[in-house]
Nucleic acid binder design. Structure first.
Length: 668
RNA sequence: GGGCGCGUAGCUCAAUUGGAUAGAGCACCGGAUUUCUAAUCCGGCGGUUGCAGGUUCGAUUCCUGCCGCGCCUACCA
């Protein structure tokens, strides 16, 4: 509702200025929010118009105020020095629309979106860094879907890379286990934990004797031959670990539609198809000398091209060399293709530009009967259509931004500018550990490390906090709180509530920081259920629900009926009028902003805004709740109004939390 | 060396993308409950936005130069 009003206001102001000052080129009408609600609900800075209109800001503001005429949903405008036009919303009108849950039509762009997230190497347990990725990705999917977009979720599985090879080496060379023995282990409950430790041992084993690295090379090579025993072991391990990852993420309500695997990208020769096109278009060049002799290379993204400069000056010198340091090796001199090359092929497929497709088979069924598909060389006949989408978002950490840019540049070089423009690297920073947290986990820290604000986790060293461990701790911690607060409930019920709280705390924690901020993980903060946390917001909803429970009313139907009971917008006006109602109005205003905030999140690829919104709404509600006794309100009409307020806020808060993947327990 | 990013209260982070008095949480101190009310609420304490210039009506935000920190910069993925 807020978003709708903002758009209309901007439109009207622009139209007005066009008519009032014909011929002038007008800048974009920016609409902001005044520092506090007393000033108004929208603020339009008029400064940018002063120059083009050759008129003082205050005069322009006054002209708009006096002459624009009525705008639906807008009550009044005020000119504020040094050059703001403050706009007040028609409170009663908005409240009535909101109570009836009227959703103004919005333009929804057509075309399917593909979001890739999680993409954990299937060789060890997921850790907190992976959790941040999955929660960001899953929340972004929910944001897009809230905005009405159609979204496919993919989780890329690098099952033939060095990391999987290393764990295979661990089993075959260090533990000297047979395929049957590995298979038995892979059936154990937390096989990914076993691999976590083994992976760290393998890294250590390599360090002890560089000769041991030979095993890695042999294994890596053997995995590429799908018919080998080594490949079968790798497949066994990676599939079992992948299943564990899906289970872990399912605990947080994170699901996927499709799992494309590197093994199929190899076996279905995606690269060959891409390679031909890349050579033909001149994106790749063959090096005949220097350190990259015998390799097919690409210009590193972000480096300036000499050929471009030559084109500018009109000099027709052909195929100018890329300086060695600007070269990115795509195909090695032994003719194997590197990771970026495979990624280029994969992304051509995403946009439907490769001319090849995966086979598909069902892999994992979620408790809600939703199927997750996996790539296969020979798949099932009937399967959904994946790939060939209009837009993509890759949730991949900031360290890979150069590789991502290289893939985008490759698409551009192939002439697919449209695709390149709709390719978004959803970049985020890592989760590190505070020195205190690292010490708690029993790691010895150097003096230098102790002075750092954070220390990077390392799967290679087995240094980090596992996702399932963290969840277990959160649940246990929430459980003891629920146990003491609600001893009358049976244990299963208390556990279910504790689980909801734990997930709320975890998902909120991962979302409250903006993407580019490194999270310095600390158990104390992550395990907190007070202040700016998920449980704080959940608790606000529980409070709202309990009011309705006591009143023997259903909050979900009350909005509509309650709005009707109040019978007219005039009634809303009575209770929202004037400065004394500012506080309650602020609550309504915040509740009206959900779609507006979702818009900002998708436009800026920043889910943190929705977390802030949930917190703000909860905070305003808690203040309201504290100041206004509702059920004991003697004035029956006012009581209805207060109940409507609670119902609307409750509904919007539930929606907001749902977008973050957070559900609300019945009691807390 | 080059590329990307960061530097804001004691700590962890925001700041509507250039706007009005830089805000939250934690921590600390002091208060609030006969109620739908404590996983809560109210108050207090806390700032030269790393430093120095520049751009303009206006800078935490943009530009330049320093200082400090992180990541990337493999024929690894």
């Amino acid at each position: 509702m807020y978003r709708y009003l903002e758009e209309r206001l901007a439109q009207h102001v622009l139209e007005f200025l066009r008519q009032r000052y014909p011929g002038a080129t007008l800048p974009h009408v920016a609409i902001e929010q005044p520092p506090n609600v007393e000033l108004g609900d929208f603020a339009i800075p008029v400064f940018p118009f002063a120059k083009p209109l050759r008129t003082a800001p205050l005069k322009i503001a006054e002209a708009i105020r006096a002459e624009i005429g009525p705008v639906e949903g807008i009550a009044e405008m005020q000119v504020a020095p040094p050059g703001y036009l403050n706009v007040r919303i028609d409170r009663a009108w908005v409240a009535a629309e909101l109570a009836r849950d009227k959703k103004p039509a919005a333009d929804i762009p057509v075309g399917k979106i593909l979001v890739e997230h999680t993409s954990i190497n299937p060789n060890k347990a997921a850790h907190i860094g992976h959790l941040r990725n999955a929660v960001l990705g899953d929340t972004f999917v929910r944001l897009l879907r809230y905005a009405g977009r159609e979204v496919d979720i993919q989780n890329y599985i690098d099952n033939t890379g060095v990391q999987v090879a290393d764990v295979v080496v661990g089993f075959t060379h260090i533990e000297k286990k047979s395929r049957a023995e590995i298979k038995a282990l892979a059936g154990q409950p937390r096989f990914d934990y076993y691999c976590w430790d083994l992976y760290a041992r393998v890294s250590h084993w390599y360090e002890q004797d560089k000769q041991n690295l030979q095993a890695r090379h042999e294994t890596l090579h053997a995995i590429e031959d799908a018919s080998s025993e080594t490949a079968a072991i790798a497949e066994l391990i990676s599939t079992a670990v992948l299943r564990r990852h899906l289970e872990t993420m399912d605990r947080l309500d994170i699901e996927y539609d499709f799992l494309p695997r590197e093994s199929e990208i190899l076996q279905l020769h995606f690269w060959d198809a891409a390679f031909t096109k890349l050579k033909d278009s001149g994106v790749l060049s063959f090096e005949t000398e220097g350190k990259n002799k015998g390799c097919w290379v690409m210009r590193r993204a972000g480096t300036t091209s000499i050929t471009e400069i030559i084109e500018d000056t009109g000099n027709a010198e052909e195929s100018e060399k890329i300086s060695e340091e600007d070269q990115k090796v795509i195909v090695r001199s032994n003719s194997t293709v590197g990771y970026v090359g495979k990624d280029i092929a994969y992304h051509m497929w995403k946009f439907g530009l490769l001319g090849r497709d995966f086979g598909y088979r069902k892999f994992y069924r979620y408790p809600n009967q939703h199927d997750c598909w996996i790539s296969a060389t020979e798949g099932e006949k009937n399967h959904p259509h994946f790939g060939g989408v209009a837009e993509i978002y890759n949730v991949i950490d900031a360290r890979q931004s150069e590789a991502q840019s290289t893939v985008i540049e490759a698409l551009r070089g192939l002439g697919h500018n449209e695709a390149a423009d709709h390719y978004t690297h959803f970049s985020y920073e890592m989760v590190a550990l505070t020195p205190r947290c690292a010490a708690e986990l029993g790691y010895k820290l150097s003096e230098e490390d102790k002075t750092r604000s954070y220390i990077e986790v390392s799967g290679r060293k087995g240094f980090g906090v596992k996702a399932d461990d963290l969840l277990d701790q959160l649940i246990a911690s929430a459980k003891s709180e629920v146990d003491s607060r609600h001893p009358q409930l049976d244990d299963a019920e208390r556990l279910a509530i504790a689980t909801q709280i734990a997930i709320g705390a975890l998902r909120y924690f991962m979302l409250k920081f903006t993407k580019q901020s490194v999270i310095a993980f600390d158990f104390k903060e992550a395990l907190s259920f007070e202040g700016e946390t998920g449980p704080y917001a959940q608790y606000a909803v529980v409070r709202a629900t309990s009011i309705f429970k006591k009143a023997a009313l259903d909050p979900d139907t009350f909005c509509r009926d309650g709005a009707n009971n109040l019978s007219s917008t005039a009634e809303f006006a009575q209770y929202l009028k004037g400065g004394s109602a500012n506080e309650i109005w602020e609550l309504w205003l915040s509740a009206a902003k959900t779609a507006y905030i979702v818009d900002q999140c998708t436009a800026a690829t920043e889910p943190a805004y929705i977390a802030k919104h949930a917190f703000q709404l909860a905070q305003l509600f808690n203040t309201f709740y504290h100041r206004h006794p509702i059920l004991s309100e003697p004035d029956e009409r006012r009581k209805q109004f207060l109940l409507a307020t609670v119902a609307v806020v409750r509904r919007e808060l539930i929606r907001t939390l749902e977008v973050m993947g957070i559900t609300v327990p019945p009691v807390m």
